[in-house]
Write a protein that binds this DNA or RNA. Structure first.
Length: 226
DNA sequence: TACCAGGAGAAAA
DNA sequence: TTTTCTCATGGT
């Protein structure tokens, strides 16, 4: 990756966010399988509610791939009820546990797999879309994959780098083509974007908090296409 | 009361 | 192929 104005700009964003918020210590979970479960449960759900559902799974002794596979669907749904969409997510968790089982319930077995084939496998699992697959690859498996979510779109869109409705792949390439493929960097960068978006004021479209407020409309000011 | 939260799959157009 | 609908609890 060459040093470009865009890569310097993305690095500047990262440095400012890190200075403003510090390390985020993501993903907030104990172990890789808990990360995978959280990635499903957090779909269109507030993390506080996901925490309740994960707490319920722990209390029920059901936070393992074996337990999720063996629990009756209705019982699993009841356990994860606080995070919403519980019937749909119970089906998704079972599909994920089945997939993990096909790898021997062993995260180590995934470490040597190449990213693209592993991503294709995950996308074929019911309930796993691009964001969920990439969250699992980055935060559970430890692959250098940049996660794009609604928060990332909102911030990058408001900075003027890309239209908010641009495709997932284009958003992902914005980061991967301009940053070193580094697991720690991708981990922290995404977490910091989420932190900023949660702090930002939704009622003011260009209010991105003080640390980035002067960087808005980068594309217009610098005439750089991405 | 209404809106939103660390999406994705299925159905309809 | 693209858009719309559905899934649903809990906090603000």
């Amino acid at each position: 990756m060459g040093e470009t104005r865009l890569s310097r700009f993305l690095d500047e964003i990262y440095q400012r966010l890190l200075a403003a918020y510090g390390h985020q210590h993501w993903w907030p979970a104990n172990g890789s399988f808990e990360v995978m479960v959280g990635a499903i449960l957090t779909q269109s759900a507030a993390w506080s509610n996901v925490n309740k559902a994960i707490g319920n799974l722990k209390k029920a002794g059901a936070l393992s791939p074996q337990a999720i596979r063996s629990l009756p669907l209705a019982e699993l749904a009841l356990i994860i009820r606080p995070c919403g969409y519980f019937n749909a997510k119970a089906v998704k968790l079972k599909a994920l546990a089945d997939w993990f089982g096909s790898h021997g319930d062993n995260i180590e077995s995934l470490h040597d797999a190449d990213i693209e084939s592993l991503r294709r496998e995950l996308l074929a699992v019911h309930g796993v879309g691009q964001e969920t697959a990439d969250s699992i690859l980055l935060y559970a498996v430890g692959k250098p994959v940049f996660v794009i979510d609604a928060y990332t779109r909102r911030i990058i869109g408001r900075l003027g780098l890309l239209p908010e409705k641009e495709s997932y792949g284009v958003y992902q390439r914005l980061f991967t083509a301009n940053l070193e493929a580094d697991v720690h960097l991708y981990n922290e960068y995404h977490a910091l974007l989420v932190k900023l978006a949660k702090d930002a004021c939704r009622k003011k479209p260009l209010c991105l908090q003080c640390c980035l407020s002067d960087m808005c409309c980068y594309n217009k000011n610098n005439n750089i296409g991405v």
